[in-house]
Design a protein around this nucleic acid. Structure first.
Length: 556
RNA sequence: GCUCCUGUAGCUCAGCCUGGAUAGAGCACUAGCCUUCUAAGCUAGGGGUCGCAGGUUCAAAUCCUGUCGGGAGCGCCA
């Protein structure tokens, strides 16, 4: 419909269609029409004030309106267009009733790495933001027809695992890891000798001491399995688990030689292998613009292995025009730039990166603080999940319906993690998170259930045809929002930002609830049409929630 | 000290990329609506110097500069 308007204007002015497309806006209120064209730009060329320019344009256009445009109206410097609502509704419904509404067939190969939490404990809510955002991006990209491969990079070569290894006892379970970790962290921070022991153990692992390797593997195995189970509850899956330890030794030593060939690698005063990045923009972002790749004893560091790993991922899509995406916390911004510049030196392009900010805990006084695994000041994803299930079960019991508390809990949590823009901190409070009213996951699922309930009670008549009636305000609003779904999906994929879809879903559900309240469906004169509208809504919301990883149910 | 992100109603957030018409939601608060499709809902109301100060522009929450508050980071952690 926007197309019709821009076409019309371009025929009657000297402006190019693409130019007009950008200028067209949606008026603040429905009574002002469906599209508006601000005439300030015409004022200049016509040498008239914008109000006169608008009048002149409207006289010219008004002579012959296409059938899609019902009327036009001047309002100050704006020219407002009222589209024919029946044509609008017909077009929108036809599209929105198809099952894969909003999807495309792009066929690009995309590798995405997300989650990659330290395998030392159960993930906390802050880190889960990585997985939830990552999973949603996967869904969006797949929905647009791309071939997506999901990777989890397991950081099994770390001080954290070495610390766990010091206190690990046979038979320890995943649930024990966090407690162990907090205990040993405290001890290590107070005792330098113990810290040395930790590093010695890590070195043994890196030099592939058999006993140490099997001990590390055992611990990491328990942790990865435990994490996998939790993510499964959230419907988050991975295609590959890539272990950092695979890149220890020869693999990274070879890489180091290649990096040396760039002439930017040097040994510093203390014997470390350091990459000089003073020629890059990191010059002004770091105290000393270098990237330390190996310790003075010659063993490689995390960054080196990460470069090796990233190159491997990049090679997988080489030649077939693929994309490489990685989801990282905001604490990794500078680090990632170091990786990117290193790759550039080696002649590689760097992956696209999605950064997200941390989840802060709000205490009873209203102040927000960051979570800390080491200090044990955190909310575990598992605990959050359990509490939310309790709350959902209570609600279901109250209204004696059939609902799925697990689905509601996952919906509530995912929505809470996705509704904010990626680079904004999320302020977590139990009170707000357990409130299922208004702007929340359960509200969205509830709207879906309401729609389902209508469709279930509807008895289809044979050969029933529907005419599109005069639309009331809530119907018009709902149809407009439904019809903008494909644009919203595209926008969120372009920015790799699921919050766009989260916000859209809420607007969509809200428009439906307004419609639900104002317009009786069953038994009304417009029953046939309204049923189609409800179907179109339900289908659109289902697709939109699917992209967020939120499941729907017919009853709750 | 330097770099990045962020500041919009009491609280939690949209809008900023791509400048335009009275700055939108939710929670909380007040008053209504269940013998019509699920009240996890809807309607109405109060509540805003869009952190602050400059600048650009016919027009700034939106762009630029500065400044203050919050978050993240800046050499053998991952």
């Amino acid at each position: 419909m926007r197309d019709v308007v821009s076409d019309l204007i371009s025929k009657n002015t000297k402006l190019r269609k693409e130019e007009i497309e950008k200028l067209i806006e949606i008026p603040p209120g429905q009574e002002m029409g469906d599209y508006a064209f601000p005439c300030f730009i015409l004022a200049k060329t016509l040498r008239k004030n914008p109000i006169e320019a608008s009048l002149k344009l409207s006289r010219k256009i008004g002579k012959k309106l296409p059938k899609e445009i019902q009327k036009i109206e001047n309002k100050g410097p704006y020219l407002n267009f009222f589209v024919d609502r029946k044509i609008l509704a017909k077009k929108a419904l036809a599209k929105a009733l198809s099952e894969n509404y909003g999807s495309e067939k792009n066929g690009e190969k995309i590798i995405i790495e997300h989650t990659s939490v330290n395998p030392n404990a159960s993930p906390h809510v802050g880190r889960s933001r990585n997985s939830i955002i990552g999973d949603s991006i996967v869904r969006i990209l797949k929905f647009l027809g791309n071939k997506v491969e999901i990777h989890y990079y397991v950081n099994d070569v770390s001080k954290q695992i070495a610390m766990l290894a010091l206190v690990y006892k046979k038979g320890d379970k995943f649930q024990d890891m966090l407690g162990n970790y907090i205990k040993i962290s405290k001890k290590v921070s107070e005792n330098p000798d113990l810290e040395k022991e930790v590093f010695d153990l890590l070195e043994k692992f890196e030099s592939k001491d058999k006993k140490t390797v099997s001990l590390f593997k055992e611990i990491v195995g328990i942790c990865v399995d435990g994490q996998k189970k939790i993510f499964e509850k959230f419907g988050i899956k991975f295609d590959y688990f890539d272990y950092e330890s695979e890149y220890v030794g020869k693999y990274s030593e070879d890489l180091l030689k290649k990096i040396e060939a760039t002439g930017k690698l040097f040994k510093d005063d203390e014997g470390r292998m350091v990459l000089d990045l003073s020629h890059t923009k990191l010059m002004r972002k770091m105290k000393s613009p270098v990237f330390v790749l190996a310790r003075s004893n010659g063993t490689g560091l995390y960054g080196l292995r990460d470069i090796a790993y990233t190159i491997e991922k990049l090679n997988k899509i080489k030649g077939n025009k693929g994309r490489n995406i990685i989801v990282l916390g905001e604490d990794q911004k500078l680090y990632f730039e170091q990786i990117a510049e290193s790759l550039k030196l080696l002649g590689y392009s760097s992956p696209e990166v999605v950064h997200y900010s941390f989840v802060l805990l709000q205490d009873s006084s209203g102040k927000a603080k960051k979570m800390s695994t080491r200090r044990g000041e955190l909310v575990l994803l598992e605990d959050f999940y359990d509490e939310t299930i309790k709350r959902a079960s209570l609600e279901i019991k109250k209204r004696k319906t059939k609902g799925y508390p697990e689905k509601i809990a996952v919906g509530a949590i995912k929505y809470a993690m996705l509704r904010n823009d990626n680079d904004k901190n999320i302020i977590f409070s139990w009170e707000h998170s357990l409130n299922f009213e208004g702007d929340s996951g359960p509200y969205l699922q509830y709207s879906y259930a309401r729609a389902s309930s209508i469709l279930k009670k509807f008895k289809a008549k044979k050969n029933a045809k529907y005419e599109i009636p005069e639309l009331n305000e809530s119907e018009t609003k709902l149809i407009k929002i439904i019809s903008s779904f494909p644009e919203v999906v595209k926008k969120s994929s372009l920015n790799l930002n699921p919050s766009v879809i989260a916000n859209y879903s809420f607007q969509l559900a809200q428009a439906f609830n307004e419609f639900y309240h104002s317009s009786q469906v069953l038994g009304s004169e417009e029953e046939q049409f309204r049923i189609k509208l409800v179907e179109a809504f339900r289908n659109t919301l289902k697709n939109s929630l699917f992209l967020l990883g939120i499941e729907v149910m017919d009853e709750m």
